[in-house]
Design a protein around this nucleic acid. Structure first.
Lengths: 340, 340
DNA sequence: CTGTTAGCGCCTTCAA
DNA sequence: TTGAAGGCGCTAACAG
């Protein structure tokens, strides 16, 4: 930078200011500086700036498992919104393991990121939350919302689950099962609540035996579905509370030789990029992940610029992606009716 | 750090050396320093170290589109291998756009990353390659290998494509079509070569009309398949050269009311996390992506430590994930035979 | 509108 | 085995 200054016949401070646009510079000198810069191939040294200015212009993103395509859209939303604000993004994978999570986040902190978007792992409160608390770093939670006064953005789990189950009940199903997610996850609890809410709305009481544990994994979904099928009064329709479990449930159905939706209607939370090509074509709740990502960054920026701003919890509305695993035609016309 | 030094009654330089283990320190003083460190909650300022030492302990990863689940496994492989070596990973999305690619990579360079793993976008040679050339930064290419003397790791495209097409020919198919990838991509060319190779091995000549362009996209795959179906002597089996095109081809088949494998056998390059749940269950070439990621990092580390090391191009062998879209039973037993 | 200068927090040569 | 001190490249008062 001093070389540029010399070449342009100005001081380093002027160069710094044209680089950052932080104070008025005569158009003419600015031009000289810029010319000198690309003459010498000047490059901004991010670390030096960060050291000096105390700001890295980088935000972190901690995800539970990059291996779930579920995040792709979210990452895209965050990426676009961050780069729009001139922020770099540093993505880390927590492996959904609290210890690893704390480790990689400590790492992010050592990099002096200016904010953090985090999809908390189960058990994050033991290590990560304290870490975050003892550091003055703004952060916002996504996906698995917490019962805490922190900024967070997720989806309307309860209402959209209820709407999906409503649909099954309206089709005439009277024994609707649910493969629920890992206990303790807010998303699991909320979706479970939606399942129950739909029943109440129809003046029904859900049979507790039809509500099984699926651990949020595809393996859990498989076992959960098998359990439901083994009941002597098995459900005629099933709601799976996340994408992995839906996969597992489908595998179980296939192994049992049951057809969807002829033998059993199946719907799930979370949409897939290729949902149209599964057989059956799955009716799902599709989250607005891009929007969630974008809003998360916006919340983060607001928190960064105004640490005293009121805490916000955003719940985006999801929509039902209507296909035919629920027993409707692709157009949404009921094709089969299941009456007891 | 100076605070730690004072607390421990030593100089900052000693503190620095115990932090980095860069010179001998009496066990006793070391203990005092360490004690002082966690007493004061000392934290290494990465930017300062980087400024002073000129090393950031961070590598970059530039991918064409985080939105393709295809990369998940690769990222996992890279992440694990990098963290094993104490390196941080900074992931950016090039959007498969040469201009955006150059932009985000310049960004990475401004961060003074120590190395870069890149899945080059089509057209990367115009902007990115020059950028990389004028910077003394080690990098390794993954996936789309180039005809350049640079470190790179990918998969055996030609042989594995040939093996897959071999399989179709062995089943008795005599008119095998191919939906090929975007021209100019090395992966496309190699897979195309594999298709031709298989025919030669069987003493056959591939009908050029059966080799259509699919642009590497699902839309292209759809159109390519439609073109094949419109031929008056349409193929009885088709090989799609990547996951997106297979998806598109499947959509075209569904729209045309054709069943796989009964009416047409279909196989594709690239496996899917959920391939078992597509209908039909797709027979594919599955790349060892985790291993590719790990090897890429190893290559990068070697290049970093020894800039003069011989350039390497690694081709990992893929395996055929045998399901039933090829017209075999799940166990691999031919169930149908297509003879002209 | 522009220049001077004191650090940011750490590493590392040089000297003891 | 340890200290002292200069400097990495840049920013941001402060002064002109």
């Amino acid at each position: 930078m001093s070389a540029v200054a010399k070449a342009a016949g100005v001081s380093v401070s002027t160069v710094s200011h044209v680089v950052n646009g932080t104070r008025l510079v005569t158009p003419e000198t600015r031009k000289r500086v810029i010319h000198a810069m690309d003459l010498l191939g000047f490059e901004h040294h991010a670390a030096a700036r960060s050291l000096s200015a105390g700001s890295t212009r980088t935000i972190g993103l901690a995800l539970t498992a990059a291996s779930n395509p579920y995040w792709s859209e979210l990452v895209a939303g965050i990426d676009v919104e961050a780069s729009r604000s001139g922020l770099d993004l540093m993505i880390v994978d927590t492996r959904d393991d609290p210890r690893h999570e704390a480790r990689v986040i400590a790492n992010l902190l050592a990099h002096h990121i200016e904010g953090l978007v985090i999809a908390p792992a189960l058990g994050w409160r033991d290590l990560t939350l304290p870490l975050l608390r003892e550091h003055p770093i703004p952060y916002v939670l996504v996906d698995r919302l917490q019962d805490l006064r922190v900024d967070q953005v997720g989806v309307e789990n309860e209402n959209s689950s209820a709407a999906l189950v409503d649909h099954l009940l309206q089709l005439g199903h009277r024994r609707v099962g649910m493969v629920a997610g890992m206990k303790g996850l807010s998303t699991s609890e909320e979706r479970r609540a939606g399942f129950l809410l739909a029943h109440r709305r129809h003046g029904l009481e859900a049979d507790p035996r039809l509500l099984v544990e699926g651990l949020s994994t595809s393996q859990g979904g498989r076992l959960g579905m098998l359990r439901l099928l083994s009941l002597n009064d098995a459900p005629t329709a099933v709601f799976c509370a996340n994408n992995n479990m839906t996969i597992g449930a489908l595998a179980a159905l296939r192994a049992s030789g049951l057809r969807v939706p002829q033998d059993l209607a199946l719907v799930g939370f979370d949409d897939y990029p290729w949902a149209d090509l599964f057989e059956p074509r799955l009716t799902t709740v599709a989250q607005p992940l891009t929007a969630i990502g974008a809003r998360a960054v916006q919340l983060l920026l607001r928190r960064i610029s105004d640490p005293a701003a009121p805490v916000e919890t955003l719940r985006m509305t999801a929509h039902i992606q209507h296909r035919n695993s629920c027993g409707c035609s692709p157009e949404g016309e009921p094709v089969l009716s299941h009456e007891q």
